[in-house]
């Protein structure tokens, strides 16, 4: 159970960067989009989402800006930067090679000794 969570946790950065490469999102919208698009399989708690976003900002992969939404609500939108696109490509390549490697191991059947 714990390993499954860790596996999913590792993909948070990839999912955020992928969605931001399509348009600018605000935090709650990101979390809801991931949940909806994955049929609720991936439910990233906001407690994990925001620290991941802060780390991406600190690394310079994304930036943020504020936008007034209604009388009392100020939304923080996140925007992917050029270095974020490079990072996304690296993560996608890494993800594909990992999935292929895991699949290869899962398909492995030892030869029975005669």
């Amino acid at each position: 159970m714990e390993n499954k969570s860790n596996f999913r946790r590792g993909s948070v950065e990839l999912l955020i960067l992928h969605l931001l490469s399509q348009k600018d999102y605000y935090g709650y919208e990101l979390s809801q989009t991931i949940k909806e698009q994955s049929d609720s399989v991936l439910n990233i708690p906001v407690g994990s989402l925001y620290p991941a976003l802060y780390k991406l900002i600190d690394a310079g992969y994304i930036s943020d800006y504020k936008k007034q939404a209604g009388r009392r609500l100020i939304r923080v939108y996140y925007h992917i930067e050029a270095s974020g696109i490079n990072r996304l490509n690296t993560l996608i390549a890494d993800y594909n090679s990992t999935i292929a490697a895991v699949q290869q191991v899962l398909n492995y059947k030892p030869k029975t000794e005669i």
């Binding site: 605000y26 935090g27 709650y28 919208e29 979390s31 708690p45 906001v46 407690g47 925001y50 620290p51 802060y54 209604g70 009392r72 609500l73 100020i74 939304r75 923080v76």
Partner: peptide, 29 residues
Amino acid sequence: FVNDLQNAIMDFSNETKEFTYNELLNHFG
């Protein structure tokens, strides 16, 4: 973090007409 969380809850609040404390717990943990 608390400010961002508050904004996320406000978004949830705008989408939902009425909710109880337990419903908020179910949604955000």
